[in-house]
Amino acid sequence: MALNTPQITPTKKITVRAIGEELPRGDYQRCPQCDMLFSLPEINSHQSAYCPRCQAKIRDGRDWSLTRLAAMAFTMLLLMPFAWGEPLLHIWLLGIRIDANVMQGIWQMTKQGDAITGSMVFFCVIGAPLILVTSIAYLWFGNRLGMNLRPVLLMLERLKEWVMLDIYLVGIGVASIKVQDYAHIQAGVGLFSFVALVILTTVTLSHLNVEELWERFYPQRPATRRDEKLRVCLGCHFTGYPDQRGRCPRCHIPLRLRRRHSLQKCWAALLASIVLLLPANLLPISIIYLNGGRQEDTILSGIMSLASSNIAVAGIVFIASILVPFTKVIVMFTLLLSIHFKCQQGLRTRILLLRMVTWIGRWSMLDLFVISLTMSLINRDQILAFTMGPAAFYFGAAVILTILAVEWLDSRLLWDAHESGNARFDD
């Protein structure tokens, strides 16, 4: 018995066209964080690309023209004298008006014999932002004059995390709450300039795509075929072959399989920071003279006294001054041990922890910024005066060393310790 099946006739004509040209192939790229070699397709503007294995951002879609970056830099340069030299806060102490600005706080630190601690604050609040705007201006002028731009481009990517104007702005709020127990506070004209400078700096850093600047100024022929001998440069993120001198053909720094002496430098910085954190938390970090009496505060006791007036601000200072430094030390110690013992479990967790400490590390400088600003506000000789204690130097040095330890660690070593050939990683 035959089955009668109805015929289905399409209502619209289906047209099949042959592909007349070869589909576009992607360029081969190595991930600078996990060293995976993959094919990167062509990316349009405002599109980002991520590593298929570790999800690290390979290409950032946010990109401004150099002219727009230069305009932002010149605007920031105009704001800087007002943000640093004009009063941020006014207080009335014992019937006398006192003005506080950024430069005055750094000068008070240096004047009291601790120039190293003052230079830490100076670099993060004044030096690094000033280098940022002058570097962008150098790129703008240098591109037109045919100057060598490689050193500036190499420095810009590392400079971003040292620009800490946003953290200093939080420190202004913390210092205001600490001082309000002794005097009446009012915002100064410099505060508005400083807030504007923070906003412009944040926007500029978020749109400063150094890798795209490398592509514009020093374009290189990408690798179009897969080759395990391809290496990625950690300076400019170019994937290719080393030249005859073993250097990256684009930025001219040595092109090595792994960062040289990464573990040794990381261990040295980490152990030194552990040693410095002990006096930083045991010795007094601030000293207040009130009517001839002397009151010393460690980091913890200062947080407890701050909690009596504002528990939320005390929580912020606790996280930045105690929780973050010790968390960074514990995480980095764990990561280094996992590399030495070739741990194969929990790779995803370790990668996330490394990215976390990379982002939060700079916030530990908050305590030094609060001390710097408070020193310029309260300084009335023996009637009422505020000065920093010996722990300030140890704390600042420990924070900087932990930042350097994270920067010096080559994250690809975590993958080397893991089993080879993993296309995915999980716990």
Score class of each variant (00 low, 15 high):
residue 2 A to H: 10
residue 3 L to G: 06
residue 9 T to W: 05
residue 12 K to F: 03
residue 14 I to Q: 09
residue 16 V to G: 07
residue 17 R to V: 07
residue 18 A to W: 08
residue 24 P to N: 10
residue 24 P to A: 08
residue 26 G to P: 07
residue 28 Y to S: 07
residue 29 Q to M: 06
residue 32 P to E: 05
residue 39 S to W: 13
residue 43 I to Y: 10
residue 44 N to R: 05
residue 45 S to Q: 07
residue 47 Q to H: 04
residue 48 S to A: 11
residue 48 S to I: 15
residue 52 P to R: 11
residue 56 A to L: 08
residue 59 R to Q: 05
residue 61 G to R: 11
residue 63 D to Q: 15
residue 65 S to L: 03
residue 67 T to L: 12
residue 67 T to H: 07
residue 68 R to H: 03
residue 70 A to I: 15
residue 72 M to I: 05
residue 74 F to H: 03
residue 74 F to W: 04
residue 74 F to D: 02
residue 77 L to M: 08
residue 79 L to W: 13
residue 86 E to N: 06
residue 87 P to G: 03
residue 89 L to Q: 04
residue 90 H to P: 03
residue 92 W to V: 03
residue 94 L to S: 01
residue 94 L to M: 03
residue 94 L to N: 00
residue 97 R to L: 02
residue 97 R to H: 06
residue 98 I to K: 03
residue 100 A to I: 03
residue 104 Q to F: 04
residue 104 Q to S: 08
residue 104 Q to L: 05
residue 105 G to I: 01
residue 105 G to H: 01
residue 105 G to T: 01
residue 106 I to C: 03
residue 110 T to L: 05
residue 110 T to C: 13
residue 111 K to N: 11
residue 113 G to C: 09
residue 114 D to N: 05
residue 114 D to P: 02
residue 116 I to M: 13
residue 116 I to E: 15
residue 117 T to F: 02
residue 118 G to A: 14
residue 123 F to S: 02
residue 123 F to Q: 01
residue 124 C to M: 10
residue 125 V to I: 11
residue 125 V to Q: 03
residue 126 I to T: 14
residue 126 I to M: 04
residue 128 A to I: 01
residue 128 A to H: 01
residue 128 A to G: 05
residue 128 A to L: 02
residue 130 L to N: 13
residue 132 L to I: 03
residue 138 Y to C: 09
residue 142 G to Q: 01
residue 143 N to P: 12
residue 143 N to R: 15
residue 143 N to H: 15
residue 144 R to F: 08
residue 148 N to H: 03
residue 149 L to A: 13
residue 150 R to H: 04
residue 151 P to V: 05
residue 152 V to H: 02
residue 154 L to S: 03
residue 154 L to Y: 02
residue 155 M to S: 07
residue 155 M to H: 05
residue 156 L to D: 01
residue 156 L to S: 07
residue 162 W to N: 01
residue 165 L to Y: 06
residue 165 L to Q: 14
residue 166 D to L: 15
residue 168 Y to V: 04
residue 169 L to A: 06
residue 171 G to N: 15
residue 172 I to R: 00
residue 178 K to Q: 08
residue 179 V to S: 03
residue 179 V to R: 00
residue 182 Y to F: 04
residue 182 Y to D: 05
residue 183 A to W: 07
residue 185 I to F: 05
residue 187 A to N: 09
residue 189 V to S: 09
residue 189 V to P: 06
residue 192 F to R: 08
residue 193 S to Y: 02
residue 196 A to Y: 15
residue 198 V to S: 14
residue 200 L to T: 13
residue 201 T to S: 09
residue 201 T to F: 12
residue 203 V to L: 14
residue 204 T to A: 10
residue 206 S to C: 15
residue 208 L to N: 07
residue 210 V to D: 14
residue 212 E to G: 15
residue 216 R to D: 13
residue 216 R to A: 13
residue 216 R to T: 14
residue 218 Y to W: 11
residue 221 R to N: 14
residue 223 A to I: 12
residue 223 A to D: 14
residue 223 A to K: 13
residue 224 T to E: 14
residue 225 R to S: 14
residue 227 D to K: 15
residue 233 C to K: 00
residue 234 L to F: 14
residue 236 C to T: 00
residue 237 H to C: 12
residue 240 G to E: 10
residue 241 Y to N: 14
residue 243 D to G: 12
residue 243 D to Y: 12
residue 244 Q to S: 12
residue 246 G to T: 13
residue 247 R to P: 06
residue 249 P to A: 09
residue 250 R to Q: 14
residue 251 C to H: 00
residue 259 R to Q: 13
residue 261 H to Q: 10
residue 265 K to P: 04
residue 269 A to D: 02
residue 270 L to F: 04
residue 272 A to H: 02
residue 273 S to L: 03
residue 273 S to E: 05
residue 274 I to C: 13
residue 281 N to I: 10
residue 283 L to I: 13
residue 284 P to A: 15
residue 284 P to N: 01
residue 284 P to K: 10
residue 285 I to C: 03
residue 293 G to C: 08
residue 295 Q to F: 13
residue 299 I to T: 12
residue 304 M to H: 12
residue 305 S to M: 11
residue 307 A to V: 12
residue 310 N to Y: 03
residue 314 A to W: 05
residue 315 G to R: 15
residue 319 I to E: 11
residue 320 A to W: 00
residue 320 A to Y: 15
residue 323 L to R: 00
residue 326 F to I: 09
residue 331 V to R: 01
residue 336 L to K: 05
residue 336 L to F: 08
residue 339 I to N: 10
residue 341 F to T: 11
residue 349 T to S: 11
residue 360 I to L: 12
residue 362 R to H: 04
residue 364 S to K: 01
residue 364 S to L: 00
residue 364 S to N: 00
residue 366 L to P: 02
residue 371 I to L: 05
residue 372 S to A: 14
residue 374 T to A: 08
residue 375 M to F: 03
residue 380 R to F: 03
residue 380 R to M: 01
residue 383 I to P: 00
residue 384 L to Q: 00
residue 386 F to Y: 01
residue 387 T to V: 13
residue 388 M to D: 06
residue 390 P to R: 07
residue 392 A to N: 07
residue 392 A to P: 05
residue 393 F to R: 07
residue 396 G to V: 02
residue 400 I to S: 05
residue 400 I to V: 10
residue 402 T to V: 08
residue 407 E to M: 14
residue 408 W to Q: 04
residue 410 D to G: 00
residue 411 S to Q: 12
residue 412 R to N: 01
residue 414 L to D: 08
residue 414 L to V: 10
residue 414 L to H: 08
residue 415 W to M: 10
residue 415 W to Y: 14
residue 416 D to S: 09
residue 417 A to P: 12
residue 423 A to L: 10
residue 424 R to P: 07
residue 424 R to W: 04
residue 426 D to E: 07
residue 426 D to F: 06
residue 427 D to G: 11
residue 427 D to Q: 12
